[in-house]
Amino acid sequence: MTDRKPGSNRKARVVGLVALSILAVVFLTPVYVMVVASVKPPNQADAIYMWQLPESLETSGIEQAWAKLKPNFVNSLLLVLPATIISSTIGALNGFIFAKMPFRGSNVLFASLLLGMFIPYQVVLIPIVRFLQYVNLYGSISGLILVHVVYGIPITTLIFRNYYEQIPSEILEASQVDGATPFQAFTRLMLPLSLPGFVVAGIFQFTNIWNDFIFGITVIPDPAKQPITVALNNLSGTLSIEWNAVMAGALIAAIPTALVYVVLGKYFVQGLTSGSVK
């Protein structure tokens, strides 16, 4: 299907593959440093030895990291999955309205919604804690989900609004003739076309929430309920740090996100085909 596309002649393809391979090597260099450091003994896991292969394979860093991260791993899943799904869904609905059902002042409203992304989180910590206590959600994963959903809405709305903009409105006009309600138009016509939007919003939210540290540490004081990033941070002490465990921990903590990319990755290309939006 791509055969007739410009840029797909043989020479270009070879050049493209070579360029991709070189870039891939460059991109993986820091990852290589991490992997190698994670299997070194603690005193070898330092900048001085960063390019050297480990003298002996040591699993103590990995074991130490896994023992500390395991209990908080589940907490993070409990947090990140609902928060990602809810904020993406809300973002899809909002984006649909801003893109396909604009009203007087909707653009101003949209712009002011976007500005909400830029608020520095450090200063809202105290109001957040007070608010969550007020609604009795402080210290719970539900409270943390609420915070992530709220601060995720501007971004997911933006992603979906721009995504739906691309989809021709004729589809919807046809449904209006059919007398479908806006909600029906959304669920039947837009949602089936929304997968790439959900993939992009999902990846962004999943990664951001999974890697969030500052909300996790302030909203949940009980170590048994804290997300994995807090445990990852605590792999290093204040004045005593074993980098092999920290590197191993970072790689372990990255597994779920990486899995999401692998699973969802191919839907970037497949999710939207020209036939369905013509």
Binding site: A258, Y261, F268
Partner: peptide, 15 residues
């Protein structure tokens, strides 16, 4: 390749 280039994004900034 998609996975390789996206992977750094899955890692914690602190590390």
């Amino acid at each position: 390749f998609r996975g390789v280039f996206l992977f750094p994004y899955s890692l914690s900034f602190i590390v």
